[in-house]
Design a binder for these strands. Structure first.
Lengths: 144, 144
DNA sequence: TTGATTCTGCAACCAGGTTGCAGCGATTTT
DNA sequence: AAAATCGCTGCAACCTGGTTGCAGAATCAA
């Protein structure tokens, strides 16, 4: 069994466990998300998967979001970025981490090892999600 | 001197001190931002200031942003929200605070007294700004 | 095989954001 | 005061990311 096939099998299992039928296109999208070094936008995926239509990518991402296979990050670039949830069976707030958006090269970095600090909300507010993005310059851009 | 005039004079002084010429329209926009109970979108301002054109509002906000009279919040609603900087002469990261976006009524709340927790970035990353938004249900919507 | 259901691609649409341009008013210069 | 200059504003058009309607293709069940 080749490495690719192993991954594919894992992806399939993951989708099945979340009640998402693993079609060919969905596996492609999942794989592209897995390959990506950083969170990607719909446009990035369109670029990477030239054979797949924008609306299909969009609907696939929506589906993945609903089933907690991925989460979205609003980095302020105007387009939402997506990345696979990496917690094993869950994608809770506690699982979330910090992101960094470079205002120069417009790349978004994941700081996987930097969890979102816990916050105490005022009485009555219920937290469902969280979006914590730092903006500035990445090392490459700061150097110039 | 009426209350309104006093405020107007303050607004003018504020703009002058930041190198922004206080035109009639700009004072209107500034005033609308001041009145608003929470961060507002361009659409909100358009609604509030029916006589002023969308593009003028947009350019005014851009100008205010550049001159640190206001800051923007990406709450994930799709449209950026703006609010006056309330620190006296500055609008630094340290001055920023947490926001809460209600997924039901789509309002954005300011938690003025909850500063953004300090974070230690990896070597080489330079922080210019920060966006920390909690999503969930506000007390009113949670009740239903 | 047939019928029902889901998935996908295409094209069109929508909204927020942005820009080009011309007119207007304020300001400065002569 | 008239002329030249400059910035501010409104209008209309545009762009881009996101979203939807629809019809054909693929999948699944009987």
């Amino acid at each position: 069994m080749k490495k690719q096939e192993i991954f594919s099998a894992e992806a399939e299992a993951r989708m099945n466990s979340r009640g998402v039928k693993p079609t060919a296109v969905r596996l492609l999208v999942f794989s592209a998300l897995h390959m990506a070094a950083r969170p990607v936008s719909v446009a990035d995926l369109e670029e990477a998967l030239q054979t797949v239509d924008k609306s299909t990518i969009f609907r696939t991402l929506t589906l993945f979001l609903e089933h907690h296979l991925i989460h979205g990050i609003e980095d302020g670039s105007g387009s939402v970025k997506y990345e696979l949830c990496h917690g094993e069976w869950d994608c809770s707030v506690r699982d979330m981490h910090l992101h960094f958006f470079c205002e120069c090269c417009h790349r978004t970095f994941c700081f996987r090892d930097m969890p979102i600090p816990e916050v105490e909300l005022p009485e009555g507010f219920a937290m469902h999600g969280v979006n914590f993005v730092i903006k500035g310059l990445c090392p490459e851009c700061a150097d110039k």
